[in-house]
């Protein structure tokens, strides 16, 4: 069971990497760029390992799968998703994303 032989991914030139970062909308300092350069090289090696030679007719398989009509008809998750897509308020009001801890909360931070 030999692992597939793998050649190191070519190093992305710094100018090209900076362009990719800009295109992604990121703003990184020099240290963050250096970390990204290392990580990107490693991720590129993983990407190189992914096969690309596929028969076009095989492409149908990995897309999502719907529930059978009977199961889907009354599914609350589906109803909630439809309501959300329509911009309606869900049955349960959404919680605020962040809130200050209540003064009487018994949870005490162990360390900060």
């Amino acid at each position: 069971m030999a692992a597939r032989p793998q050649s190191p991914a070519p190093l992305t030139p710094p100018a090209e990497l900076e362009q990719m970062v800009r295109r992604a909308g990121l703003s990184l300092n020099a240290g963050q760029m250096a970390d990204l350069a290392l990580a990107w090289r490693q991720v590129s090696e993983l990407v190189e390992r992914l096969p690309r030679a596929w028969r076009l007719a095989d492409d149908q398989a990995y897309v999502f799968r719907l529930s059978p009509p009977a199961a889907a008809a009354g599914a609350p998750a589906r109803q909630a998703a439809v309501a959300k897509a329509a911009g309606k308020t869900a049955a349960r009001p959404a919680a605020p994303a962040r809130r200050k801890p209540a003064r009487k909360m018994s949870g005490v931070p162990a360390r900060r």
């Binding site: 990497l17 990719m20 970062v21 992604a24 990121l26 990184l28 963050q32 970390d35 990204l36 290392l38 990580a39 990107w40 490693q42 991720v43 990407v47 992914l50 096969p51 690309r52 596929w54 095989d58 492409d59 990995y62």
Partner: peptide, 20 residues
């Protein structure tokens, strides 16, 4: 940052290749 930022540079075709 080391583990996640590179994900912003991946192409859609790479992600689909992984799912395939």
């Amino acid at each position: 940052r080391v583990r996640v930022l590179a994900g912003g540079l991946l192409r859609a075709a790479d992600y689909i290749a992984a799912q395939r």
